[in-house]
C-alpha cells in the first residue's frame, strides 16, 4: 500500500517536471507564472500522498503552507511585476 502512494507521488512529480517546460517556453510572463501555480497544486497533492505513504502527518502542515503560497506569488506577480513592456506578442499559437 505504501508503495502505491509513493508511485502516485512519482507520477505527480513527473507531471510537475513536464510543467517546467512551460516555464522554459513562455512566451508571456503570465505563462511562466501559471506553471508555478501548477506546482502549488501538484505540490500539495504530492505532499499529502507522502504524508500518508511515509506516515508522517506533520508533512500535511507543509502542504497547508504550499496552498497559501502559490496564491501569494501570483498576487505579487500581478500587482508588481508584470510590466507593460512585457507585451511582446498578442496571442496566437506558438507551437503545434
Amino acid at each position: 500500500m505504501t508503495t502505491l502512494y509513493l508511485c502516485l507521488a512519482i507520477v505527480l512529480l513527473l507531471s510537475v517536471v513536464l510543467g517546467l517546460l512551460r516555464i522554459m517556453w513562455g512566451p508571456t510572463a503570465a505563462d511562466r507564472m501559471m506553471a508555478a501555480q501548477l506546482f502549488g497544486t501538484c505540490g500539495v497533492a504530492i505532499l499529502l500522498l507522502l504524508a500518508r505513504g511515509l506516515e508522517q502527518l506533520i508533512i500535511e502542515d507543509v502542504a497547508l503552507v504550499f496552498a497559501l503560497l502559490s496564491a501569494l506569488a501570483t498576487v505579487a506577480f500581478v500587482r508588481r511585476a508584470w510590466r507593460r513592456d512585457d507585451v511582446r506578442r498578442t496571442g496566437g499559437p506558438d507551437h503545434d
Binding site: 507564472m33 496552498a67 502559490s70 501570483t74 500581478v78
Partner: peptide, 13 residues
C-alpha cells in the same frame, strides 16, 4: 484554501 486561491489568481491573471 487551494480552491479559493486558484480561482482568485486565475481571475487576477
Amino acid at each position: 484554501l487551494v480552491l479559493v486561491a486558484s480561482a482568485t489568481s486565475c481571475h487576477l491573471v
